[in-house]
Design a protein around this nucleic acid. Structure first.
Lengths: 234, 234
DNA sequence: ACAAAAGTGTTACACGTACACCCATGG
DNA sequence: CCATGGGTGTACGTGTAACACTTTTGT
């Protein structure tokens, strides 16, 4: 049995892949190898298959591009302007993913001509992909102000100064390092390791690991993390 | 030109309609008049038409059921489990709307056998509509803790005790009325009127109106409104 | 010994919360 | 005159933000 007399549409999934390389916030884009808009920059996307959920399709697409599985991913929203794709009416559901760039497993610029771009130096993208990224950036700022989310972008061991650089990158601002580290340590989510990172300073900075158990417990108890979050969220 | 070799799917829009009648938080449901699941309670929904965006479809559906236009409405998320509709594979995009029940213009139980239910005394719904409502409730709690959103559920003129009842209904808790009114008035969003509501008490409670200009300016500057929001958000 | 980044402590202020009494009115 | 709900003020504790100096170590 089927529903009769109703239109059936293409449904695409587009992935907004955020990454952090230790210094900068970045986004992974591909260069389309086929018409229309060949050679133009784009989000990685694809059509949903008949037996897939959107989540599964998004993970399939992410894996195809990065080789990674088990990555933090969240549904952003559906984009449905009837004219958004000139070829054929398509509804796009956007997902955003957070990955540690060190873990990125494929070579850049091979299969899909993929490239990491600084978040604030992005090229023009096809279709409505630019507004998608803007909305995703905003959602990430919103959410990271309230939840301990950005750890997803860091390697297992990281230092407080790295973490601070990450937050400062996302919000394009600077934080007082004393207040920053006190607030973070007061969450009890970080476990100090014995080793130090000696790469980035002479004195060396202690590595920390995330207390995974407390992390999942406290995911929603992290509000008020960014001072004056309203300054940053639109 | 078309994309070839890709599956086309049905896309439905389902509306979660929240309302407040002055005392209680409610949700508007309909009783399906057709098979499958005839007579069972359901969200109001419909299929997207070829020339519509999802937003427009959601507004069309809302108007058909309530007679209302220009209502606060927000995309919740897409639901895409391949088995979610046994008749045919359908992706549903859920929207939630906030309306003042006094403004509801249609008669109950006519065209669609619609009925208002207390939010915590909802019947079992068809398909995956129950989890949709749960997710919507949660999103509303989250968002209302951070933004001055619940005014959408009130008439133009309202009293502080009404407003407090509304918040207490959503969070299933009670607030100290002194702290509540001080915090609200300190936002500067409320303009006190000269008249009082004499219906609900002998002394009468002053009516307030929303300062619409400041409201839109401050929509994102309302964080930290609920004490310990993390207690309420999951 | 010097440069460069890591790490730590104190103080002032704002905000949040708990709490108790008076006011206005209709019956 | 009294019961009912509306409205206000204060004191205390917590959390946030601003701020400067010492430590470590490689060169």
């Amino acid at each position: 049995m089927k529903y009769s007399g109703q239109a059936r549409l293409l449904v695409a999934v587009d992935c907004i892949i955020f990454g952090f390389d230790g210094d900068n916030f970045k986004i992974l884009l591909i260069q389309r190898g086929f018409a229309p808009e060949k050679k133009k920059w784009s989000l990685m996307g694809g059509f949903i298959q008949p037996e897939e959920s959107l989540e599964i399709a998004a993970n399939r697409i992410l894996k195809k591009l990065t080789g990674l599985e088990g990555v933090y991913m969240e549904q952003l929203q559906a984009f449905s302007n009837p004219d958004r794709d000139p070829v054929e009416r398509t509804i796009a559901v956007a997902y955003f993913a957070l990955i540690d760039i060190q873990k990125y497993q494929k070579q850049l610029s091979t299969d899909y001509h993929a490239e990491w771009f600084l978040l604030d130096k992005m090229p023009k993208l096809i279709l409505d992909h630019n507004p998608m990224v803007e909305i995703a950036k905003n959602r990430l700022r919103y959410k990271a102000a309230l939840h301990p989310l950005l750890f997803e972008l860091l390697p297992e061991k990281f230092t407080i100064p790295q973490l601070q650089a990450l937050y400062e990158g996302l919000y394009s601002t600077t934080f007082d390092k004393r207040n920053f580290s006190r607030k973070l340590l007061s969450t009890g989510l970080l476990i100090r390791q014995k080793e130090k990172d000696k790469e980035n300073s002479r004195k060396g900075a202690f590595y920390f690991k995330l207390d995974k158990l407390k992390y999942s417990d406290n995911f929603d108890a992290f509000l008020k993390f960014i001072p004056n979050p309203d300054k940053f969220i639109s």
